[in-house]
């Protein structure tokens, strides 16, 4: 098995192994969360497992990620989180103090997101069989979006908004995990996105599609969407917000910030005429105060993502297999 890192190999694993085995309508739609209806209520359900190293990093802990990640996946389905579960796999020898810090940050994140952690599970594995702490969270949400949300609603001419500057989470993790020093401190952007999403709904904006920009960054998220929607998404390099520190760090590391992970950023697709209002609404929320329109949707059956560079060319942003292996010969 060599399917780490997200990207195309993970997709392949899902397509080859999991989908055929578990096939059903909700799963096959391949959203981050499933839409269900039960007793007349429109529900969303999602699950995610967190394996980050280090457990505590600038701007957050694995506990924040576990709460925010799942709440955000629900938000991307247009749902407000109702309850979370938390499952812990703890490695023997883990410092109690670390566990307490992680748990405290989970409690705080859940408070901010206004969601109770209603059930849980704990397993302790032998030393060497875990990596400190693994956390799984599952979330149930109530769909409040007035219309359906998803790639299939994207049309040529739609605009793409991102909620803030990109790449901080991935770079923050690298800086502590690998002891790299950059021009300044970089904090993870981990945050609960629901207030911003909710504000869009409350303002009556017809949101076509939402996606959080986690593993694989903006590029991977847009590639998945473009493929499903059968469109070409073009972003304008000059408009994509990236902080100077993150940009500098990416240059040094040889990484493309458009592929770097975020934990508190999302993309919104709306019709051209709704862009200005959507931006106003989003900028009114702390978590998306830096929202910007960065791209446009065009027709193209085969689905592709391109960046218009500063000098005018249209570079293709591919869905990469995992690691960024050099392609220059």
């Amino acid at each position: 098995l060599a399917h780490g890192g997200g990207g195309r190999l993970t997709n392949q694993l899902i397509e080859d192994v999991f989908l055929p085995a578990f096939s059903n309508a909700a799963l096959n739609s391949r959203h981050d969360g499933a839409l269900l209806s039960a007793g007349g209520a429109r529900l969303a359900m999602t699950t995610d497992t967190y394996v980050v190293q280090p457990l505590i990093f600038p701007g957050g802990t694995i506990g924040d990620l576990a709460v925010n990640g799942t709440v955000n996946d629900l938000a991307m389905c247009g749902a407000t989180a109702v309850a979370l579960s938390a499952g812990f796999v703890l490695e023997e020898g883990l410092a109690m103090e670390t566990l307490q810090t992680v748990v405290a940050s989970m409690r705080d994140a859940a408070l901010v997101a206004n969601v109770p952690i209603v059930t849980g599970d704990t397993k302790v594995v032998d030393k060497g069989k875990g990596d400190g702490v693994f956390i799984n969270t599952t979330g149930i949400g109530l769909v409040v979006a007035p219309t359906s949300i998803g790639p299939e609603r994207i049309r040529a001419g739609d605009s793409l908004i991102v909620s803030g500057d990109l790449g901080s989470h991935g770079i923050a993790i690298l800086s502590v995990r690998d002891g790299l020093e950059f021009e300044g401190p970089v904090l993870s952007d981990t945050a609960c996105l629901w207030p911003s999403v909710n504000a869009l709904f409350e303002a009556g904006i017809d949101v076509h599609c939402l996606r959080d920009l986690t593993r694989g960054g903006l590029s991977s998220a847009l590639n998945e969407i473009a493929t499903v929607a059968g469109v070409r998404i073009t972003i304008d390099e000059a408009l994509v917000p990236i902080s100077d520190v993150v940009r500098g760090a990416c240059e040094m590391l040889g990484l493309d910030p458009l592929y770097v992970a975020n934990e508190g950023r999302f993309a919104v697709f709306v019709a051209e005429e709704d862009v200005d209002r959507a931006l106003d609404v989003m900028r009114g929320q702390t978590v998306s105060a830096g929202a910007l329109r960065v791209g446009t949707v065009y027709e193209r059956a085969s689905g592709i993502v391109t960046v218009r560079s500063r000098i005018g060319g249209n570079r293709v942003l591919d869905m990469l297999s995992g690691e960024q292996l050099p392609r220059i010969c």
């Binding site: 002891g179 790299l180 040094m252 590391l253 040889g254 990484l255 960024q324 050099p326």
Partner: peptide
Amino acid sequence: AGSLALLESGVNSPQTSSVG
């Protein structure tokens, strides 16, 4: 200095036997 940090951490530093 920047290269050194990468070399030591191994971050995004693939191995190569390239004459180029």
